[in-house]
């Protein structure tokens, strides 16, 4: 449910760090709470976001939730396949349901993120 190799934000995003890149999506908990995802507003490539800045939204049948960038950086790719298949966020939140890739501008932001165990502990509160 919460892979050990990822870092997590309290806003229910996950981050996979690859060199100076961060691949970002929403957690199993987030997709489960949302229910069927029907639209993801993707951030444009080239746009810069600060850590904790809103970078898009994810809409389910019942609700809309903001997405917050877990780190500061510039968008280098977005998952355009979600335009036709937003359900990937539900079916494969950590793999095919990824949302954006960023070039990390401030690696210290990663220190503010949680381990899988620490993130899961926040869900139990």
């Amino acid at each position: 449910m919460y892979p050990e190799n990822l870092k997590y934000s309290q806003e229910h995003e996950w981050v996979r760090v690859e060199g100076n890149k961060a691949i970002i999506g929403i957690t199993h908990h987030a997709q489960d709470a949302l229910g069927d995802v029907v639209y993801v507003e993707l951030p444009p490539v080239g746009k810069e976001f600060k850590a904790m800045q809103e970078f898009g939204v994810v809409e389910s049948v019942k609700s809309v939730s903001s997405l917050y960038s877990p780190v500061s950086g510039k968008v280098t790719a977005n998952n355009a396949s979600l335009n036709d298949h937003p359900e990937k966020v539900n079916l494969s939140p950590y793999d095919e349901g990824w949302i954006m890739e960023m070039e990390i501008s401030n690696p210290a932001d990663l220190d503010n993120l949680l381990s899988a165990a620490a993130y899961q502990a926040t869900l139990k509160k």
């Binding site: 229910g35 069927d36 029907v38 019942k62 539900n90």
Partner: peptide, 9 residues
């Protein structure tokens, strides 16, 4: 119940 595991869709 708002939904079951099958999901709203």
């Amino acid at each position: 119940p708002v939904s079951y595991p099958a999901g709203i869709i």
